[in-house]
Computed example of a mutant assay.
Amino acid sequence: MTRLSILDLAPIPSGGTAGDALRNTVDLARRAEDAGYHRYWLAEHHLTPGVASSAPAVLIGAVAAATRRIRVGSGAVQLGHQTPLTVVEQFGTLDALYPGRIDLGIGRSGQRARELRDAPPEPAAPATARRVKGLLIPPPFSFTPAITQAPIFALALALLQQPGAQSPDFAEQVDDIVAFLSGTYRSDEGHEAHAQPGEGADLELWVLGSSGGQSAQVAAERGLPFAANYHVSPATVLEAVDAYRDAFKPSQAYPAPHVMVSADVLVAPTDEEARRVGEPYGLWVRSIRTGAGAMKYPSPEEASAHEWTEDDRALVADRLDTRFAGTPEKVVEGLRVLKEATGADELLVTTIAHDHADRVRSQDLLAQAWADAGL
């Protein structure tokens, strides 16, 4: 049976606070464990009004303390903003406290953000979609100056590093993390350094990526598991998993490629209820893609008051069209298609709704339907 796991951003609902969101995360994690989910991962986002998951290592500790068996991890630590040593020390501490339960998911978001800021505008994507083994692959989303040149975008890059600091190459950072964990780190001058806690930690190390670029290559060449983002970049998910598998080199831990694929889901007893609860999703995605940062998640009533333009709809179409929303049977069938089209070994689902009760219900309904389907 394919494992099903959770990715949580600790979304802040309109009218709520960061404290509300974080308490909801801890509660949702407890319920995820009871429902049989395999992992509970926390995202990393900064300077966003509607997301409270800015310090995943801290939040992982709170979730691990509140649960007993479920694996807890990051999806993903942004290596462009931290050093390998600090990451290994943080997650080594978590492993020392909760041995055998901690995942370290890493990504190159910090480096990628700088590349987007400094690159010329991307050409408009062709307005065609396709289906591969039944899975919708929309046109690629083109990052525009409205996003990459937004003040909040530049400010985040400035505030997350010391003045003048430069992030090393992602591959070098991953190699340093592996070396600190294994106790084999040597500086360029040949000096040893040992992370404590961290050295010898029983962590699962994952690389997350949205394309067939460096993240997929780094994971493959080091024999690490790879998590591909259908929910963030649905247009490039097949490119990502194919590149990873093509370049994979067996390791002691992973003699064969191991892929997890993410998806946005919302499950409700009826399609009509899923449409009602899910109506704010497009407005929330719009807030991200206009460069304002994720807004506090609106209520269905607040979302219904928004007057949509054609440009608005085009801006969020790929994310709306690839969200699996509806009855348990409908969502399970969508996830089955995603699993078969990508060859995923595991699936990672993320659910956002204004009311915590709707997220809990979605999570519970999906777990039961997935188990009943025997997938």
Rank of each mutant, 00 (worst) to 15 (best):
V77A: 07
T128H: 15
P197Q: 09
A65S: 12
L375R: 01
G16T: 01
D34L: 05
T25C: 10
I152F: 03
L366E: 06
V360D: 06
A220N: 07
A305F: 14
E172L: 14
E333W: 06
D264F: 07
I60L: 13
L79Y: 01
Q82H: 15
G198F: 01
E346P: 02
Q196S: 06
A325R: 04
A124G: 15
F141L: 10
L9W: 15
A119K: 12
A52T: 03
S210Q: 07
D175P: 05
V72E: 01
V349T: 09
A227W: 03
L320Q: 14
A62R: 12
L224F: 15
G190N: 08
E302S: 11
Y297V: 00
L338G: 03
R71F: 05
L104C: 10
S142A: 13
R336I: 14
V285W: 02
H45D: 03
A154W: 06
R131K: 11
A220W: 13
R319P: 00
H231E: 04
A62D: 06
D202V: 08
D364Q: 09
W284G: 02
T309P: 04
L203V: 01
V58H: 01
E44G: 03
S287V: 01
P56E: 07
I288R: 13
D372H: 13
G50I: 00
G110C: 07
A373Y: 06
L375V: 10
R361P: 01
D20K: 05
P225R: 13
P126C: 11
A253W: 15
A263H: 08
Y244V: 10
G326K: 05
T342Y: 05
G36H: 00
Y230L: 08
S362G: 13
Y254W: 15
I60G: 00
R68W: 02
D95M: 02
I70V: 09
V132M: 03
Y297R: 00
E189N: 13
R112P: 02
A32R: 01
A32N: 01
T148V: 10
F324G: 04
V349Q: 01
S5M: 09
H231M: 05
G15I: 01
A367T: 00
L136Q: 06
R186N: 09
R71H: 06
R39H: 03
I147C: 07
L159V: 03
R30P: 02
A150E: 03
K133Y: 04
Q78R: 03
D176L: 07
V72A: 03
G107R: 02
K133R: 09
R69E: 09
A10M: 10
T67G: 04
R186H: 12
G105I: 02
W41E: 00
P140I: 10
A158V: 04
A65Q: 07
V88L: 12
I60S: 00
D202G: 04
F170V: 01
L315C: 07
H45N: 06
V237Q: 07
D264Q: 10
I102D: 00
A235M: 10
T67K: 02
L157M: 06
A146E: 13
F180I: 00
A76I: 08
I60P: 00
L375W: 04
K330M: 08
I12C: 14
S251G: 15
A119V: 11
T17R: 14
E272L: 15
S167N: 03
A158M: 05
P84R: 14
A263T: 10
S14M: 08
